[in-house]
Amino acid sequence: MLLSQYIFLFLSFVAIISALMLVLDKNPVHSVLYLIITFFAIAGHYLLLNAQFLAVVHIIVYAGAIMVLFLYVIMMLNLNKDIEPHKKNIPKVAAAVAAGLLLLSLTALVNGAEVNMLPAARNSNIGLMDNLGKTLFKEYMLPFEISSILFLSAMVGAVFLSKKEIH
């Protein structure tokens, strides 16, 4: 076993365990904190994959912005206790069976394929900012501009939705 394989296994273990705890914990605040742990593990995976800029952006956007938004909404709605009513067992079992079958079928799909070890990197610094920026602003210029319109409409929509109706 190589060192990178140990790092991979450790990060995967952390990500999967905290993702399971996110689903199974009844308290929404704990769920948010477990999701942050999962995001940091995924950022570690990005670092392992030589996507340094993406790892930094991932931490800033997800752990910094989106999770703060979640925590803020949870605190505003005062959900920091177990308010989830007890659910009947049949939907829970059905959910677990459905997710398990999806896991089984997807795993079986990949399982037969031959194992491709990573070829030696053709270009080891594709994760750096200048390469990503060149691709983003040359080949993906139009989607970039469209995503700015998407952001604008999302912002307008959020403001409009959360405005109190005036009677």
Partner: peptide
């Protein structure tokens, strides 16, 4: 390179 040795299947 730190990544060599991890199969993509993982």
């Amino acid at each position: 390179e730190v990544i060599i040795g991890i199969p993509i299947q993982w």
